[in-house]
């Protein structure tokens, strides 16, 4: 259940003006993104495929693919600057203070070792638990992740487990070092909907019980709505709107956010037709003078294309990148309760 952040000024992660280039530095795919994640807070990034969500996550984790690099901006994690952090320093951080789960859990596990062994190793190496203790702790952690018969699971190999069970195993490994921040990039996207609901509940519980902060990514606003206190809407490598989840869903200020709401899962079973966002996002690296969304925007006017559109703070925690934000009327998702069903 989204809980209010523990107040301003308690920043855990501060991303400031980050630009990411791909293709060996020739093409800029993320154009100066700034946001913060506070201790214990869940922040969600939502946006279409290719909008730069994963590049931002990978920048935060220091695991950008070869040929991709942060070319400007700073990333601060609890006082440590992460851009250009030496490998050794990362070793101290990743898996213990920052960890991650991705869409395909199987590819982050060693297929030839039992999942229990892999978790116990993590507990031994990263947390420094003696061998026997690590084993007991691993079983307990599997149990805490909602895996039934954790003793049996301990001795199983990745291929013997379903996708949902694997994601719980990876989550167990991710939280074994008691991290302060978990980055979850499409962590539930590949799961069956009933299992997705269970894993989202598990993430909610980990937040409550461990004070874990979460940076979650999904292309489906509905998933972010279930999990996150605040939402960051990405479009074509830019942050176009941000605010508390309930506010953004209730009264979006950016036309693209409204469009995402229309295409999100709404649980509205007698909806007439699935809505779409017409057109395509601009290609990565496209030189665009004004608003990057203008070609697809119903509200586009000449002033939208005349120059760069700044992200404008509207209220504390609430900002939007649209020159016409104050004069257009957009519709929200309807009444939104503050809490998910967790």
């Amino acid at each position: 259940m989204p809980e209010p952040g523990t107040g301003r000024g308690d920043q855990l992660l501060t991303v400031d003006g980050v630009r990411v280039a791909i293709g060996g530095g020739r093409t800029e795919a993320v154009h100066g993104v700034s946001f913060e994640v506070r201790r214990g807070e869940a922040v969600g990034i939502v946006g279409e495929s290719g909008s730069g969500k994963t590049l931002v996550c990978r920048s935060v984790l220091g695991v950008l693919a070869p040929g991709c690099a942060v070319t400007a901006g700073t990333i601060d994690f609890a006082g440590t600057s992460l851009v250009g952090l030496p490998r050794r320093a990362w070793e101290q951080l990743r898996g213990t203070r920052i960890s991650a789960v991705f869409q395909d859990p199987a590819s982050y596990l060693n297929p030839s070792q039992t999942v229990g062994h892999q978790l116990a190793e993590q507990l031994r190496v990263k947390v420094g638990k003696p061998r026997r203790e690590a084993r007991t702790a691993a079983v307990a952690l599997f149990d805490a992740m909602g895996l039934h018969e954790p003793e049996r699971v301990y001795h199983q190999y990745p291929h013997e487990l379903s996708g949902g069970m694997l994601q719980r195993v990876v989550l167990a490994i991710a939280v074994s070092g008691e991290p302060e921040l978990l980055v979850a990039d499409e962590a539930t996207t590949a799961l069956d909907v009933t299992i997705q609901a269970e894993v989202l509940e598990l993430l909610g519980r980990l937040r409550r019980e461990r004070g874990l902060a979460v940076l979650a990514v999904s292309h489906d606003l509905a998933v972010i709505a279930e999990l996150c206190d605040r939402v960051l809407v990405f479009y074509a490598g830019e942050l176009v709107e941000t605010g508390p989840t309930a506010e953004v869903l209730d009264s979006p200020r950016h036309p693209y956010t409204e469009a995402l709401l229309r295409v999100a899962s709404v649980g509205d079973w007698d909806r007439r037709t699935p809505d779409v966002i017409d057109g395509e996002p601009p290609p990565v690296g496209a030189e665009i003078r004004g608003c990057r969304f203008a070609d697809r925007c119903d509200f586009a006017a000449p002033q939208c294309r005349s120059g760069p559109v700044p992200l404008t703070e509207q209220a504390p925690d609430r900002a939007v990148r649209c020159v016409r934000a104050s004069e257009i009327a957009l519709s929200g998702a309807g009444a939104i309760g503050a809490g998910a069903a967790v």
Partner: peptide, 16 residues
């Protein structure tokens, strides 16, 4: 299945 589906509208939703 229906209760588990994520939604941007949660009123009256059944807790899975």
């Amino acid at each position: 299945l229906i209760a588990s589906a994520p939604s941007v509208r949660r009123q009256d939703r059944l807790d899975p």
